[in-house]
Simulated assay, not measured.
Amino acid sequence: MIQKWSKQKKQLTNFMCESLKNRVVFQVTSYRKAHDQMGRVYVMIDKKNALSMCSLKTMSETYIRQKNLWASGKEQNIEQIQELAIAQANDAGYFSKYHFWYALEEYFSNSIDQTLSSPDPIVRTLGMLDKRTGKRRLLKMKQQIQDEHDIVKYFYQLRIKAEGLN
């Protein structure tokens, strides 16, 4: 069962490292007149938008990629095309509000080791902000972070600077 956002936000804040606790804010909006209440999740750093997960933009981007994959003729299975299009959109930095909910659920139910090794870049991003990811671990990650998703790299660098490790 999904908790209310206010409880999740409080839990997320409790997991956040001290160096970023007052700088990073998560905001969730819903389009109430939309039949499925689509919306966005914003991650604000120092009151500036650092990451926006918009369901509508992600759906649009996924649709374009599905159309291109279908036209290429390489993939014929509709399910495979959908999965590949979503993966491509995520790789390009497009994530939906729903993706955030699933990532949050995974994050709250996993250990920090599981979080940092998750296949989901949003889960790993949450791990970069987590107080359970200590300074020594951050320094040990320096080499492997080069192969990470751009969003994970961005939040890793933010945390490194906030901890004074650069």
Rank of each mutant, 00 (worst) to 15 (best):
I81A: 04
P119T: 03
S52H: 01
I81W: 02
H99R: 13
I64E: 09
R159H: 04
A92W: 08
Y63M: 13
R136A: 09
V24W: 11
Q66C: 13
A92V: 02
S19H: 05
D130M: 05
D36N: 08
Y102P: 08
K153Q: 15
K47E: 11
R65V: 04
K9A: 07
N110A: 08
I64T: 11
Q66A: 06
H35R: 14
Q8G: 05
E79G: 09
I86F: 10
M44E: 06
K48G: 00
Q146P: 03
Y63Q: 14
Q144L: 10
L126W: 01
A162K: 00
Y98W: 14
S111L: 03
M128W: 03
V41Y: 02
A162W: 01
E18L: 12
K48P: 00
Q82G: 05
T58I: 01
I64Y: 11
A85W: 03
K74F: 11
A92I: 04
L158T: 01
Q114N: 11
R40F: 07
S52L: 08
A50Y: 09
C54E: 10
A34L: 05
K142I: 07
Q82M: 12
C54Y: 10
T62M: 11
Q143C: 07
A50R: 06
M141D: 07
V41A: 01
F95M: 05
A50V: 03
A162I: 01
G39V: 03
Q11F: 02
L158K: 01
K7A: 13
K135S: 07
H35V: 11
N77G: 03
K97Y: 10
N166S: 08
I145G: 03
Q143M: 11
K4L: 13
E61K: 15
D150R: 14
Q8P: 02
H149T: 02
K140R: 14
K47A: 11
S96D: 04
Q3E: 12
Y156D: 04
K67V: 05
Y94P: 04
Q8T: 05
Y63I: 09
D91E: 13
G127Y: 10
K47R: 13
F108L: 10
L51G: 02
P119V: 05
K57Y: 10
R136V: 09
R159A: 04
